[in-house]
């Protein structure tokens, strides 16, 4: 049952992707990208990744859409017709895709409990987390405690991205400074 729901949602995800690739109006692309994020969040619920689904629904479907709409407001909303032939990129992508599918055929099928990924480190997390950290949510415990350095670096990345955008788009501040230097020149 779980794999059936998963398959249906993944098929919808693929259909949305085809629509995104074909759509010329960028406004439509942004709305479809929002739909894509919600479908992705649903897939994550099926995959038991509830924390990730919550993040994807709020970040991917809400914040990303708002930022994309804000950027479209400042630029053009229409994509121009491509000038180059599509054959070469299509062939390239088909070749890469075929190679990757061939590579994944040796991976364990969906949902097998004895796959290699479940053998190392994870049993310790599942068995010891409550005793060691007192937090029943293993994801939170691993995120903030066992892998605290990862999350510290990740928070720093967010911080740097925010600083970068403020420097790139903070036109108001620059105008203030220009006025200040002009006032100093007058003095």
């Amino acid at each position: 049952m779980e794999s059936l729901i998963n398959m249906v949602l993944l098929t919808l995800l693929a259909a949305t992707t085809i629509a995104i690739v074909g759509q010329r109006s960028l406004l439509g692309v942004v709305i479809l990208a929002s739909v894509y994020s919600f479908l992705m969040a649903s897939v994550m619920i099926v995959l038991d990744a509830v924390d990730v689904a919550m993040t994807e629904a709020s970040v991917g479907a809400a914040i990303s859409t708002v930022l994309l709409l804000g950027a479209l407001h400042l630029t053009k909303t229409r994509e121009e017709a491509p000038r180059h032939g599509r054959l070469l990129p299509l062939l390239l992508c088909a070749a890469v895709g075929a190679m990757l599918v061939w590579g994944t055929l040796v991976l364990p099928p969906f949902g097998t409990p004895d796959a290699v990924i479940h053998q190392h480190v994870v049993p310790r997390y599942i068995n010891e987390t409550v005793r060691e950290t007192g937090s029943p949510n293993i994801v939170t415990a691993v995120l903030a405690d066992y892998r605290g350095f990862d999350t510290l670096g990740e928070t720093t990345v967010i911080f740097i991205a925010g600083i970068g955008v403020m420097l790139l788009l903070g036109g108001l501040r620059r105008r203030d400074r220009a006025q200040d230097s002009a006032a100093e020149d007058q003095r």
Binding site: A62, I63, G134, N137, T140
Partner: peptide, 21 residues
Amino acid sequence: HGEYGPGGGFQAGVIVAAVII
């Protein structure tokens, strides 16, 4: 409630930002 159910700092932060937006 992030230690006991799904959630945590990331999700709460984004929801607070959504309120302002």
